[in-house]
Design a protein around this nucleic acid. Structure first.
Lengths: 69, 69
DNA sequence: GTATTTTTACCGCCTAAACAGTATAAAATG
DNA sequence: CATTTTATACTGTTTAGGCGGTAAAAATAC
């Protein structure tokens, strides 16, 4: 369970959008190394860089907790 | 719309858990400055540090996109 | 098959995140 | 009220993420 892979999710969306890593990086305003690291599931990246990449790919982030309403 | 505030969400959950910033930081294995920054919505924090804090508070992250299944 | 594109990987440099310590302001407690 | 705890803010140091450049490996196109 919970073998969710953020890197793969982003890579799939990037492919479907017809973008290379470099193109995605430029659109998101981050370096190509960052996109590469994200797709390799490196979690020490900065949160704002991840958000920038997700925004380009139209992926939204939601935070779920038992207390949420 | 979308005035969602991650810092406030985390702060509320921390309060309900009866934790101080320092206690939460220690439990998450991060510095107290990081917890403070997260609650102040500083987005340049590292993703793994945010995940560590969310885990302690039992908050899950979901990524939503039009392509998801 | 070869040529081209893309991905993966590594390299130094620079910047800023992360940290502990400290100090003050604010909040909570008695 | 005073006292204690917590949150906020600042500082100096250390560490590593981010970056472009480069190069080799892999995938794709011709």
């Amino acid at each position: 369970m919970n073998d969710f892979n953020l890197g793969t999710l982003i890579k799939d969306h990037r492919k479907k959008a017809g973008l290379t890593q470099l193109e995605l990086a430029n659109l998101a305003g981050v370096g190509k190394t960052t996109v590469f690291d994200i797709e390799k599931n490196k979690e020490t990246i900065r949160f704002n860089n991840l958000l920038a990449v997700l925004k380009v790919l139209n992926i939204k982030v939601e935070f779920i907790s038992p207390l949420n309403k």
